[in-house]
Amino acid sequence: MLTRVRAAAGDGWASPYLKRLIWPLAVLVLLIVVNVAITGFDFLVPGVQDGRLNGAFVNILRRSAPLLVIALGMTLVIATKGIDLSVGAVYAIGAAIACQWISGPNENALGTVLIAVAAALAVAAVIGAWNGTMVAAFGIQPIVATLILMIAGRGIAQLITGGQIPDVNDTSPFVELGRGAILTIPVPIVIAAAVLAAFAVLTRRTALGLLLESVGGNPEASRLAGIRAKGITILVYLVCGLCAGLAGIIGAANLGSADANNGGLWIELDAILAVVIGGTALIGGRFFLLGTTIGVVIIGTLEVTIINVGLSSQWQFTAKAIVVLAVALLQSPEFRAFTLQPFRRRTPAAAVQEAAK
């Protein structure tokens, strides 16, 4: 039974669904080649500095870790034909709670840090569950339900911090979540990899992935089949909120502060872009965690590429739009058939059909 579930969920490298990863990978390789041509192989080859891996590509992965954590949660939401526009605000709320709780006389105490992180994650999970309840229980459109918290969330974060930017001492264990290393690997990369591995196991080694795709593909049929679609919808929004809070903690730990106004600003758009680049359709159904990961790395590499080729930062949004358009067109069978049609050799049957028109 489990084998059939995994096959239906698109598990395994031989799956035809994973062929959609070819074009995102090709775009990523192209960006890497461009950077290597400009900066040399030092772009890819990491070094060790202060007991931590360092280098251009490693820094891209480290800076992209919060986005990857959010994008993975967003992938599950989109798989159920939903969307979460509030993740940037939840990012700011999680960072605000953690830093506001830690900043004080006991900020170097490990217990204080653990309680602050747990509180931030708990609030983020509650916000995610609220979004899911609004969508599943009350039938509010996902874009409307999450837009409410997208607007109000930063105001909540400002209320938590009192309109200030709370700072955390560099000696606090909290900053290790953003600047530390485990066996020379930056902690943000370790956390993002752990979240990816956990999601992969839960969605591809259990029936959860099939249930998510069933709810996203046809909610009514799923309900009639006995699947608790409402419960699954609430669960994925809860997980997405939890991921946003975790990303906010990582970002705040790296900076040593929480900016309610600018923390995680527009990160929801980058998360959606990464999911789309990775081959997951916004109409729900099939989803690709590995594709989302590739999409996140493409976005991070693209931002560095813009600087390396000498373009101004104003090109960033335009370049992202161009990359998304290119990958979407390359992934479209209709577009490939249209562009390759002049180069294809007509069969006798096709010639007969064309002559009969």
Rank of each mutant, 00 (worst) to 15 (best):
N261D: 15
I232Q: 00
G216F: 05
R228N: 15
L242F: 11
S214P: 14
V275I: 12
A271T: 08
I232A: 02
W266M: 15
A244T: 06
N262M: 12
L235R: 02
A244H: 08
E268V: 02
K230R: 14
G231A: 03
I277D: 13
A247M: 10
A253L: 08
G245Q: 04
G251C: 09
S257V: 10
C243F: 07
G241M: 08
I234T: 14
K230N: 14
I277H: 09
G263A: 15
L269E: 07
C243A: 13
L265A: 13
G216T: 10
P219L: 01
C240I: 06
N218I: 02
L242C: 12
G256F: 04
I234N: 02
G278T: 14
V236S: 05
E220I: 02
E220D: 13
K230V: 12
A253C: 04
A260I: 06
V236E: 12
A225L: 03
G217F: 05
A252Q: 02
A221S: 13
R228A: 15
A225G: 15
D259W: 00
G245S: 07
C240N: 12
G256N: 11
I277S: 10
E220R: 13
K230D: 15
G226W: 00
C240D: 13
G278A: 09
I249H: 06
A271W: 01
I234Q: 01
N254G: 14
G256C: 11
A258R: 01
A274M: 11
G241D: 06
V275Y: 03
A247E: 09
A260T: 01
G216C: 07
S222M: 02
N261K: 11
K230P: 04
L246N: 09
G217I: 05
G251A: 14
V276F: 07
S257T: 14
G245L: 11
D259V: 03
N262E: 11
I250D: 05
A260N: 02
D270W: 05
V239P: 03
I250H: 09
R228I: 14
L238S: 13
N254T: 12
C243N: 10
I272K: 09
G264P: 02
L273V: 13
A244P: 06
Y237K: 05
L246Y: 04
V236M: 09
A253H: 04
I250Q: 06
L235I: 12
W266R: 14
G264T: 04
C243E: 05
S257E: 11
G264Y: 02
A225T: 12
A271E: 05
G216E: 10
V239I: 15
A274L: 08
